[in-house]
Design a protein around this nucleic acid. Structure first.
Lengths: 361, 361
DNA sequence: CACAAAAAGTAAATCGATTTATCGATAGTC
DNA sequence: GACTATCGATAAATCGATTTACTTTTTGTG
């Protein structure tokens, strides 16, 4: 009980000594190799328990060919989407017996490339990269240059040398176009708070392409910019003002959560009634969107599925799976809420908000 | 240029050979030890550049007394607050030359204890723990049992064996009480969506204690529960209905972001006008709260400051700083918005987003 | 110039595991 | 009983750095 060396941690040799075997045997038992006699294995397990021994992952990894670590690089950790993605990745990887190192590139491509290189320093078995820009960004280039095993998620499209997993931005946006059209909208603003993200660009394309097939035609304005927030606010405000006075656009499709937030607050500031004067649909759902007035219609991405497929793609690649890159497109779900107008709003049951006059009208 | 061993990474010996010195000298140069002749140091740096050499953190850490790793354990990564906290911790630690391992306990105390033990396996230099419950939870117990160096943040109060850094929940809540009283509210509901969090309990106390000093007196109802969401919704709904018909409570102080979300949506469902029928103040600010109708008044916590102090407390402790534990209480800021009623709302109209930390160049 | 002291450099030990090469014991075959 | 597989166990090499202990070189002083 009172073991002398209580100050520092037990090593594999301490366990070996206590069990009366060699360190190599202990290692075998710990990793489940069968060629150990039953009673020896038992004594080893007992010693492990007695000494409260746990493997040092650094020492273990140093010698091992493939370290049981998976690196995850995401553009930020403050948004619901990537937070959930990181959580789901962690869970999936741990279920497979891997440790996860999470890092945030903070929307910087330089930092992204740096982090990828750092993952390589750790000699991770594989990396899941959610790039700032796309499959052609700095992080992906570094992955390729260093010959790393990786899966790209979220802001990517098919075609690169890596497996990819992403929501089907194109189809989801096309669906939004259709729905808006059916609700009678013939002039729509597409707003994005960044031009750099591949996802945003794909969303524009998906919407535009489907719109082109509709008859009577739909007019699309796009407002994409990488300017500072204040400048973007002004641009949106100007657009909305003009749209109201000239009776042009009747709906906005905001292409990211940030964009939704921005458009919504500008609509409020101008006293534009939603959805009466202007409908709103956002890409990327968030919990709070149920509680705003009006509640916001949004495209929900299957985060857990994306994370799960990313990890399993990575693992099968690590297990020497087929060498052809696979591209996964996961379907999204359009959640209809009040901001959609028309048939929207069935998501908020029994709610008597109609009697309310609109704020700051 | 065409070095034979281009397939696998360069080691410190490769660098040494190329620079014509020993590995020990290379190590010295890399870690900035001065006792190296200028031209030798130069040749080493050249070789490092030529071979694209980068230190293997595993090998490096194995031998070092204190590994340059800091562990961070947070209750979840999906909320804005902890996402921002994790980001800020990462940044602060990296500035000090430490790697960070982030892990989410997913609001489970068992997992928290497990993660703490895993951090110890990694022999991290120190750990920042944002506990699920409090400074007396399973994670803190494990930290103590393993004799780890750690700082506790967020859901803690003073008194344990660890340094702590937390928002001044007590004072901030007391301030809310005062403000509500001054706005004429004499009957307030305190709602919390969990009872386990130390922060929530402190917020109740702070509010209640200050309320006791006010004249004429304020009536406080508290609705705290760990039940499932649906049950909580029902409870809130019942309370609000009754409050409306019996004209009792005129304001709600929601004690966490989840709670704010829940109360807000129930108020909407019942068609309760906010702030006319019922004012609302929430603890913990979020970006979306500016865009709701009404926009939500909330207590904003100084996340970056908390993270910064946590890391520097940890580092000074690692550098053998004073052995008496320090308790940091960081002041919060009450952001007045429309939901407060009375003098509230001056925050919203012509007001650009607050100094939020979104790296968008 | 000789000698001590300081500076610079290196071989080898070390960290804690895994993996390899080898050895001894047991079992199986004729 | 002799010889060969097979099985189980282990000593030693290994991973890639840091650190120690020691040697060599340089510098400073009278």
């Amino acid at each position: 009980m009172a073991n002398g060396a209580s100050s520092s941690r037990a090593t594999i040799h301490d366990v070996a000594a206590r069990a009366g075997v060699s360190a190599a045997t202990v290692s075998k038992v710990l990793r489940g190799v069968t060629s150990v006699k039953a009673d020896n294995a038992q004594r080893v397990r007992q010693a492990v328990a007695d000494l409260n021994y746990r493997v040092d992952p650094l020492a273990s990894g140093l010698r091992q060919e493939r370290r049981r670590i998976i690196g995850a690089v995401v553009p930020d950790l403050e948004s619901e989407f990537f937070g959930a993605l990181a959580t789901a990745l962690e869970q999936a990887a741990e279920d497979a017996g891997y440790n996860v190192i999470i890092a945030s590139s903070r929307e910087s491509e330089d930092r992204e490339a740096d982090l990828v290189a750092r993952m390589d320093d750790w000699r991770v078995a594989g990396t899941v990269l959610a790039p700032v820009r796309s499959e052609r960004g700095a992080g992906a280039a570094t992955l390729a240059r260093l010959g790393m095993t990786a899966v790209l998620v979220d802001r990517v499209s098919a075609g690169g040398p890596f497996d990819t997993v992403t929501a089907d931005n194109f189809e989801a946006s096309a669906h939004v176009a259709e729905q808006l059209w059916q609700a009678g909208h013939r002039h729509v603003l597409l707003h994005g708070a960044t031009t750099i993200s591949k996802s945003v660009r794909t969303r524009v394309e998906g919407f535009a392409e489907r719109a082109r097939t509709l008859e009577p035609a739909m007019t699309i304005d796009t407002l994409l910019s990488d300017e500072a927030l204040d400048a973007q606010r002004l641009a949106v405000r100007d657009y909305l003002k003009k749209a109201r006075s000239e009776r042009t656009a009747t709906a906005v499709f905001s292409l990211s959560q940030h964009s939704t937030l921005l458009v919504l607050s500008e609509m409020r500031r101008l006293g534009i009634a939603c959805p009466q004067d202007m409908a709103l649909v956002g890409f990327d759902d968030a919990e709070w969107m149920q509680t705003t007035w009006p509640s916001i219609s949004a495209v929900a991405q299957p985060v857990r599925t994306i994370a799960g497929k990313a990890v399993s793609a990575l693992l099968s690649r690590l297990d020497g799976g087929p060498d052809l890159t696979a591209q996964h497109l996961e379907p999204c779900r359009l959640i209809m809420r009040e901001s959609f107008g028309a048939s929207g709003g069935q998501d908020t049951p029994g709610d008597p908000l109609e009697e309310r006059t609109h704020p700051r009208a």
